[in-house]
């Protein structure tokens, strides 16, 4: 019921912004609101290069907050569940908690700061209408102000504000990656049975979120000198990483739409095999050992950007 109220509220906001020709910022707020407050489930196709795969997604909001499940339908079993900032991933036959424990992702979404950053770094405009998975959509284009970030194109469901299709394009206007729903159920039709399943009830650490808000901000001493204009540091933390890693320092920079993470950790034997540039769709990763530390730079940005960022990492501490 609550979700339906949310959907109606959203439809009003969405249609108002459409009819009144209000700023695109209102439209973006509507998209973010829809993504977080609407119950939906569906199947989408994800493609980059010659790789195509199908995934199922389900997002349900109840009195305990939002539950979200993403599972691969092709190849080996892969699954992710998110709930109130906690993230679990299927690994070695069990669900393993993989988030930082610092409550990332549970903050109010699209803060005014983020919206203004977005409109500073991208030219946002509506470029037409289209039909996706049987739904009418409005098409928005996010054109970056420089070549250090990708162009985005999104297809927004006119009824619900949900993103039904999304494409990332490079500076030659070639598609780097895209995904599109082939099937979507919204509201009471959404698949919600799984949130009461044993799998969810048995998630390790479910509901155990650090409530310690007084934790001082981390100042690791690591800085990036050549961060592209418009990227601002949003998070700095020292986090555990799954596996045998020592605690890792992570700095996150955002331009409102894309993020770049910088990871720094002490180098260990065998790390030199990880060095180099690699990619997966729109995500690029560049790794390098410098003076006994391994740097990893990850982001939904072009290769040149992660390289530029990594080469300007510096320790400015004591």
């Amino acid at each position: 019921m609550k979700a339906w109220v949310g959907v109606f509220g959203l439809m009003l906001a969405f249609n108002a912004s459409a009819a009144g020709g209000q700023s695109t910022l209102d439209l973006l707020k509507a998209i973010a609101f829809a993504g977080h407050q609407t119950d939906y489930s569906g199947v989408f196709v994800y493609q980059y290069g010659n790789h195509v795969e199908t995934s199922r997604i389900s997002h349900i909001v109840d009195q305990n907050g939002g539950y979200e499940k993403l599972e691969g339908l092709d190849g080996p079993r892969r699954e992710i569940i998110r709930h109130r900032g906690q993230v679990w991933c299927y690994r070695q036959n069990e669900m393993v908690q993989v988030d930082s424990g610092k409550g990332g992702g549970k903050f109010p979404m699209l803060l005014p700061d983020q919206l203004s950053a977005l409109s500073e770094n991208y030219k946002v405009r509506e470029v037409g209408t289209d039909r996706v998975a049987g739904h009418e959509t409005r098409v928005l284009l996010f054109q970056p102000r420089d070549r250090l970030r990708y162009t985005r194109k999104v297809w927004v469901d006119t009824g619900t504000g949900l993103l039904l299709k999304s494409a990332v394009l490079n500076d030659k206007n070639q598609i780097v990656e895209q995904y599109a729903f082939t099937e979507l159920k919204v509201g009471k039709d959404a698949d919600r049975s799984w949130i009461a399943s044993d799998e969810v009830k048995n998630l390790p650490g479910l509901g155990q979120v650090s409530q310690d808000k007084t934790e001082p901000a981390v100042n690791s001493g690591w800085v990036v000198d050549a961060m592209p204009g418009g990227f601002r540091k949003t998070t700095e933390l020292v986090r555990p990483m799954h596996g045998n890693h020592a605690p890792v320092t992570q700095l996150v920079f955002s331009d409102g739409l894309s993020a770049i993470s910088v990871f720094v950790e002490p180098a260990s034997p065998g790390d030199d095999e990880k060095e180099g540039l690699s990619s997966r769709g729109a995500v690029n990763l560049y790794s390098k050992i410098v003076d006994g530390h391994v740097y990893h730079v990850v982001g939904e940005v072009p290769p040149i950007t992660v390289i530029q960022v990594l080469n300007s990492i510096r320790y400015n501490g004591k």
Binding site: L28, I31, A32, G35, H36, F44, Y46, E53, S55, I57, H59, E68, K69, L70, E71, G72, G75, P76, R78, E79, I80, R82, C89, V98, D99, S100, G104, G105, M109, L110, Q114, R152, V154, L162, L163, S166, Y179, T235, R239, M241, H242, G243, H245, V248, Q250, V252, S254, G256, L257, S258, A259, S261, F263, R280, G281, V283, L285, V298, G299, E300
Partner: peptide
């Protein structure tokens, strides 16, 4: 692990919702 750690704080979660986690489950 790095992709997962990055995704936790990426604003693409706001725009694309859970679908943005596709990078971490793709094979």
């Amino acid at each position: 692990d790095y992709l997962m750690a990055h995704q936790e704080f990426s604003p693409s979660n706001d725009m694309n919702g859970g679908a943005s986690y596709i990078h971490t489950v793709t094979y």
